[in-house]
Structure formats: C-alpha cells, structure tokens
Nucleic acid binder design. Sequence first.
DNA 1: TTCGCATTGGCATATTCTGCCAAATCAGCT
DNA 2: AGCTGATTTGGCAGAATATGCCAATGCGAA
Lengths: 154, 154
Amino acid sequence: MRTLDAIDRHILLELQHDGRLTNQELADRVGLSPSPCLRRVRALQDDGVITGYTAEIAAGTVGLAITAFVRLRLSSHATDVVDQVEERLRDIPEVVEAYLLAGDDDYLAKVAVASFSEYEELMRTQLRAIPSIAGITTTFAFGVTKPRSPLPLG
Amino acid sequence: MRTLDAIDRHILLELQHDGRLTNQELADRVGLSPSPCLRRVRALQDDGVITGYTAEIAAGTVGLAITAFVRLRLSSHATDVVDQVEERLRDIPEVVEAYLLAGDDDYLAKVAVASFSEYEELMRTQLRAIPSIAGITTTFAFGVTKPRSPLPLG
DNA sequence: TTCGCATTGGCATATTCTGCCAAATCAGCT
DNA sequence: AGCTGATTTGGCAGAATATGCCAATGCGAA
C-alpha cells in the first residue's frame, strides 16, 4: 500500500472516468507537463495500483439481458475442495465476477446470461455440478441503480 | 440490441482485456487495417455498446482494505421514496456499485472503505439515515475469487 | 546557506491517429 | 452467371501523441 499525493489521486480519478485519456490531456487536467505525468502513470502501473484498463460494455446491448447474483454454500472447506470450486468459478465464462465471503454463504458470484432458460441451463450443468456445493441462492437484478463508480480516494 | 459479427465480438473481447490498445494493435489482432477497425470501434461507442473506458484500481493498494456487500430492504416502494433512496446511493462515494433486486431485498450495494470503523461510521451516518430503510444486511468479502472478467459474447 | 535527492519541463524523434478517396466485397435480382 | 447498388475495406498523408533524454527546478536535512 503506497502513499498517494494529491496529484496521484487526481490521476487515478481521471483515469477511472476515462481510461483512454491521452497523456497530454491527462497532464493538463492534473496540472503537470506530459513528461512527469507519464512517469507517474507508469509508476502507478508498476506498483500495482492500476491493474489494467478495460472497455465497459452495456450487457443489454449485446444480448445479455439477465444479471444474477448467486450465493454459494459449500459442504466442505478442505483446501482442495475450495481450490477446485474457485477454479470452476473462474472457468465459467458467464461468471463475470466472484468473491469469497464472510458469513453464512461462502461465495458471491455475478452472472451474465441472455435469458432465464440460459440461466437455468447454467444452473443445472455448471453450478450444481460443482463438487461439494451445498446450496445455491439466486437473486436476479432488475436493473442498475448505480453503475461502477470511481473508488473513494479522499 | 445490435447485431455483432465475429470481428465486432473480437474487438469487444480485446478492448475488455486492454482498453488502452492502440488502434493499430487492435486492428492487427482482429485482422483488419486500422481504418475500418477505428470505424467499428466508433460505431460500437456511438451505438452504446461500449459505454466507456476505465482504469482498474487495486482497492487494497490505495488503502481501501474492506469490500462489503450490503443488501437493503425498504419499508415503502412509493415512487418518490424509491427515487430518493436511489439518489442517496448514487451520492455516497463509498457505494461503488448498486443494483435493484428481485426478491426479499430491494437493493444490493457494493461498498469500499478503509476499515471496519469507517464502515461502521458509514452505516450509522449514511445508510441507516436513508429514509424508509427497513433493513440492512452486510456481508464482508475476504477476497476476490474471480476479478471482473470479459462478458461472455459467444 | 549548501549539498543531495527527487521531481519537473522541454525538446526531438518515433509512433499513432484519423479523415478522405478509390478499390474491393457482398447481397439481391434478373 | 452477370449486373447493380450499398456497405466495407485499405492506403495514404497531415496532424496529434508518445516517449526517452537531459538540464533545470524545488525541497528537505545538516
């Protein structure tokens, strides 16, 4: 965990809003010339603060009409079981994000599919097929209330 | 919802992996020359398929050690109440994502904070302060099992 | 003040972007 | 098949950007 000054935080804010800003424009916005600005961005990347850049896709526009949140409970927490479950989650393309949880459920997975029948199919053939799964709770999302937003960096 | 051909899907895949690819490199990867490649990317943006580009930040490296998932229940679903709740969620910087849900809970919010005490403070002063909130269920994440991954585009 | 270290700004070259036009591709029709 | 019109492509050239290098600047410690 790295100490960020005000300019670093400003850079991170701008790049979270628009990851394709040119270095020149970014430099203008944070009040640096392009050269030191580029060095700071590189340093943030090298230090693992910026882990990558992605295009945001509106799932609905590409036929992925259903977003579901799935909570999984395991019947065993042996190391090899846990490893295998996590590997399965990573290998299912429809699982677009997953977290290990504290509490009654063990995992929270975010799933994107085209239709309910596709979700049912996924459930039957992929999720329930994971060894040592003791329970699955699905919650469907009607919509996005707040889209992915920049991290609160003070 | 737009019809995507194989090249469009390839473009979306590449840009989800690296949103800062140069147009030249992207064109190489999808097997086009830069000119039509750029036109396709522009079209995907104009059609609302690509909604933006963001830098991914490792929350832990900038002091945000705690990720929490918060499920909210409302005591009223009157239009103005709902609007106000959603506005509040959008205005809280620590809420980095939120969804309207089907089922027992009304909203799922993802929260990023530096510490448990900061979470407690947020809970007391921001979340419980939202009018018509009937219940709050917090689940903390121990870690990321699968990081945000490209959408399954066939 | 003076030294030493980290950071900055400017410059020059290499790379990339991007609008325009002609060539190629493709679907539909006879 | 062959023709036609619409769409898509590739290449080119001027403009914009990226990026390595070096001297100058700022800042803290002694």
